[in-house]
Design a protein around this nucleic acid. Structure first.
Lengths: 210, 210
DNA sequence: CCGTATACGTCTACACTGTATACACGTGAG
DNA sequence: CTCACGTGTATACAGTGTAGACGTATACGG
């Protein structure tokens, strides 16, 4: 009935994109919409529900424009994974929220279903499909969240700092891998390689049983 | 120098365990320690640094008591993964924080190094080790965070609710998998199966190149 | 013994936060 | 006309992180 709710959600989204999720307060949002803070509660029961609505709105943008039925299952899966990553790069604040609530909104369920059908088409036994969906989604979201929140470090300065801070010899792995750790990590190609590995994993599960 | 900082960190940890991370406020923490809120700032520069210190303290508990050198690489890796999961089950609030900052604290680096050496021992080419470490850690932390924050749903009620809310036929994957979705998910065995798959993935990367 | 440095803690105050409660105004239906 | 309903407002409360100025207790070098 009311596009007002969507209007509010989009305003919140705009604030988050411009100034970070931390600046999304009921007062700031109200001012942006042009109302009193309490007016928001007519359209949103909680601040939590507001945040839920925001991620819901982003998830809706994840669905491929056309059904994309012409692509093979692995291409559809890769496209979805890339869509998640580009989404969290445009909206870094969203990555953390994806872990916060079960995927019960209609849009989220539709995305899950896309993964289900892709895995079925890949030949994964029905019994294993939900587990593999969670495995893949968990990794993809986790990667996006790590990237967005800085867990992967900020570049080449980081690994050097690591080794220096601990007594020599206590980190055999780090010292052996030193040449590779000093390279500035290219997360684009890394993500690609990770996806390749996951596809192989899916094929292994599919091939082993059917 | 000052065991006082550790004392404060442990008090914060206790509050988080008893009443949830949301109840960890400078005022509540100060009262627990028996001081004025502002006194905490002598030992901790920020609330953010306080939270960082809390996860650091938990990461320290992740290291195996003895070096555990007698176990094979895959057993050491599995043990580490299980340790993360049990840690986030005991401290559900911690899972989200693991995504928040790069692993630069000494304890975190030591954990990363354990994974490095395990992967090297597995025969993974040096060049691929850091990537695989990130892949595995990302999944394990993501799984723990999902479990802790409810992303995996709260049981069997959830999947039924999902399908009911959307028009029939729009979710082919869900309707085909209905029998499996209604089963209460057993996250213990699911995590085990996921680890098995990841081990296979590691062996594949190792075997393909050396 | 004295002066000083350092670590630690207190008090007050500010600018925010989410939201409960009570009230006002429009519009459309019976 | 009246009543309900959807919407927005005004006020208020309890809680948050933390800046700034001020004390005090212990230890150390002359």
């Amino acid at each position: 009935m009311s596009g007002r709710r969507e209007e509010i959600l989009d305003a919140a989204l705009a604030i988050a994109d411009e100034h970070g999720i931390g600046k999304v307060s009921m007062r700031a949002l109200a001012e942006r919409v042009g109302v009193t803070p309490m007016a928001l509660y007519r359209h949103v029961s909680d601040k939590a529900e507001l945040l839920d609505g925001m991620v819901g709105r982003l998830l809706a943008g994840l669905l491929p424009p056309d059904a994309g039925q012409d692509q093979a299952w692995d291409e559809r899966l890769a496209a979805l994974a890339h869509a998640v990553r580009t989404m969290t790069r445009r909206h870094p604040w969203a990555a953390q929220l994806l872990f916060s609530r079960p995927a019960v909104t209609p849009d989220a369920v539709r995305v899950v279903d896309l993964i289900y059908t892709a895995l079925i088409e890949a030949g994964v036994p029905d019994r294993e499909v939900p587990r593999l969906e969670r495995l893949i989604a968990t990794f993809v979201i986790g990667f996006a969240a790590s990237e967005a929140s800085g867990r992967f470090g900020t570049g080449s300065l980081d690994p050097r700092g690591r080794r220096g801070r601990l007594p020599e010899g206590e980190l055999p792995g780090h010292s052996r891998l030193a040449p590779w750790l000093d390279l500035p990590s290219d997360l684009d190609t890394e993500f690609e390689a990770d996806l390749d590995d996951l596809m192989r994993l899916i094929k292994a599960v599919a091939g082993g049983q059917d």
